[in-house]
Design a protein around this nucleic acid. Structure first.
Lengths: 152, 152
DNA sequence: TTTCATGTAACTTTACATGTTACGTGATGG
DNA sequence: CCATCACGTAACATGTAAAGTTACATGAAA
């Protein structure tokens, strides 16, 4: 299975956007992320519906952050993506008639559920603002990289 | 990505085998698991190498449990499968030059690593013998299902 | 020496994230 | 008003990995 990197991707985008005034076109963001504009629009669609970002068409259009970064957690962003599966493993059959399989599922589900809960809790502890803070530390004296400067 | 169900599958097999004396052919196990004999051999291969099960060719051959069920944990079985990925999500780039992506990775890795560690710990707490105990409770008065009875 | 059962390679199928192409919608600016 | 820009979205292509299938070799038992 290919690993789902949408959460990683969308956070990358948001953090870039938070570093300088927008709006940003899908085209610009795609160049910075080394991917396709349509992919950007796809993973941003959920955030737009919830209102974390806004998008404008036409000249001077593009994407803009429309939320309080200190109020939105990584878990919120994950939810905006539609809560995709977190674990790469699962049960063979979800509601088996076989008692043996029921026993196996019960044991695995306990471990799986615990791990999922912890992961979601951890994501819920980190806000986008905290991510931005951490980035600022990493930047140190270095100048911020203007993603709009990328030209084909 | 399709969900990996090998751990679920191999546990199902082991638990079935623990309920009655062997050996069991891949054919028989495949029928009970509603899958293909080759799939059985594949997921059992790792367990054989470590010595949790043995396999014999020819007449009267098949698979036999060759370990102390109270000594082998679900984590051990998982390891025997080759430690496949646990999480369905990951970072876009593992060693990014972009500082923004580094900040994102750092935040996500912390959550990911914690969740993986917890999952492995939970799997390490459960032995195959404990699974068998749980199964016996679920069986209650019911008679055990003889998987060898399946006939095409 | 025939039959049975595993061992394994090679191929097909399925599922899903990602990438790409094409075209529609609406906003801006001349 | 119409050409351009940028998003919205459907449709299709690609890459990857698990699961399923076929084929055949190896070795043990009757």
């Amino acid at each position: 299975m290919k690993r789902d990197s949408r959460l990683s991707g969308v956070l990358h985008i948001l953090l870039h956007m938070a570093q300088q005034p927008g709006p940003f076109t899908s085209e610009t963001l795609a160049r910075a992320m080394d991917t396709n504009p349509v992919v950007i629009r796809r993973i941003m669609a959920g955030l737009r519906e919830i209102g974390y970002v806004r998008s404008e068409k036409g000249h001077g259009g593009g994407w803009t952050i429309a939320c309080d970064l200190s109020k939105v957690t990584l878990r919120d962003v994950y939810a905006a993506l539609g809560n995709p599966p977190l674990l790469a493993m699962g049960n063979r059959t979800e509601s088996p008639g076989c008692l043996v399989e029921q026993a196996v599922n019960a044991a695995l589900d306990q471990a799986f559920d615990d791990a999922e809960a912890l992961l979601l809790a951890r994501l819920g502890e980190v806000t986008l603002a905290m991510l931005g803070e951490d980035l600022r530390k990493r930047l140190g004296s270095r100048k911020i990289h203007d993603i709009s400067a990328h030209r084909a």
